[in-house]
Simulated assay, not measured.
Amino acid sequence: MIPSRRKDLGGFEVGRVLPWTKRRMVGPFIFFDHMGPVNFPPNVPRTTDVRPHPHIGLSTITYLFDGEIVHRDSVGFHQLIRPGEVNWMTAGSGISHSERFDTIREQGGALHGIQAWVALPDFAEEADPSFVHFDATELPSLAEPGMSVKVIAGSAYGMTSPVKTHSPLFYAHIELAPGRITQVCGEYSERAVYVAKGSVHIDGELYQAGQMAVLTPGAMPVITAFDPSIVMMLGGEPVGPRHIWWNFVSSSKDRIEQAKADWRAGRIKMPVGDDREFIPLPEDPPPPPEPMS
């Protein structure tokens, strides 16, 4: 069991799950943050926004249950992120982006979601940066009495997401009514279940909101909801050891040093339409990775 470690970002809290001291990754998933839930008051300050910052060697996904975030990146995309949608950004050789609360700044509003990073395999670490968006209605889903499933990426429950990934993985959003039973997806060597809301029994052991269960390879445990619950299932095949420093992920320490020098020298482009401020490179040793992916 991995507990989330809560951190105040000066306006709302996130719970850091991955990386953890005893478990750095689950499949290619190297970073996992639970954002909120929080209700922003009217006139939420701009200091709550995540200013432009860089990434290399990974793909990011900000998945919302509630609220809105405005995404801008150096490839030129300006996208409103809404609940149930996929906004999949591949940093590859280098990208910068910002995530702001422009649409809820004046009147306030709720925010609740998950931010995850997927480490790219060796052959894709220097891929051209890119961004894709899929509406909630474009993602495969099913609804049964007491349960709904949406496949965000990869394949699960007999469904396959349209999101192109660079290595075998899966990521799914499941909602369960009290007493509803389901089983964890198989086929992948590394898998985990994260409880985002409510509480569930996994093979009889209780897991509550903010806890991740990392499963034994090959195990097919039964999940039973104790309360109305939201669980995120994730995993895939390992891509090999990865270094993580601030917002940079790579198989090479030298590549991370180059990324640090590039951001310090301004060689990584700023987000189009959002280039008046940025997060400077931290001093060594770095703080934990920026919670907003």
Rank of each mutant, 00 (worst) to 15 (best):
W246G: 07
G273S: 06
F248D: 13
I181C: 11
W20H: 15
T224K: 04
L120I: 05
T21K: 14
E277Q: 09
E125D: 14
I279M: 09
M25H: 03
V239E: 00
I114S: 01
G10L: 07
R100F: 10
G273H: 05
M25N: 07
A110T: 07
S130F: 08
A119N: 04
G109D: 06
G67F: 05
Y157S: 08
P54Y: 06
D203V: 12
G92M: 09
L281A: 01
L58K: 02
L234G: 05
I2Q: 01
A209L: 03
F101D: 09
G158M: 04
V193K: 05
V86D: 00
G36D: 14
R180S: 15
L234N: 06
G240K: 01
R242K: 09
E106D: 14
M89N: 04
E138K: 05
H78I: 08
L169E: 10
P52Q: 11
M1E: 10
P289Y: 13
V151Q: 02
V44N: 08
G179P: 11
E190F: 04
I279Y: 00
R24C: 08
S148C: 02
T137A: 05
P288V: 12
F29I: 03
R82L: 15
T48I: 11
K7N: 14
E68L: 11
S130H: 06
N87W: 02
V193L: 12
G109Y: 05
K197M: 10
P221L: 00
I95F: 07
G10I: 05
S93A: 10
F226P: 00
W263E: 07
F131Y: 14
E68H: 04
G109A: 04
I114R: 01
R23M: 13
T160H: 02
R180V: 12
I81R: 13
M1I: 12
F278T: 01
Q258G: 00
G198M: 01
Y171T: 12
T224Q: 11
W245H: 06
V44A: 10
T60E: 15
E126Q: 14
P271N: 05
M232F: 14
G154D: 02
E277K: 07
K269T: 12
F12P: 04
V75P: 01
I2K: 02
R180L: 06
M35R: 03
D284L: 13
Y194A: 08
D8H: 13
A127H: 09
H71F: 09
L142G: 09
F12M: 01
K22H: 14
D284R: 12
G113K: 00
G94Q: 07
G92N: 10
E277I: 02
H53P: 06
E205F: 10
A219L: 04
I244R: 08
S74I: 07
E277C: 03
F248N: 10
M220L: 03
V195M: 04
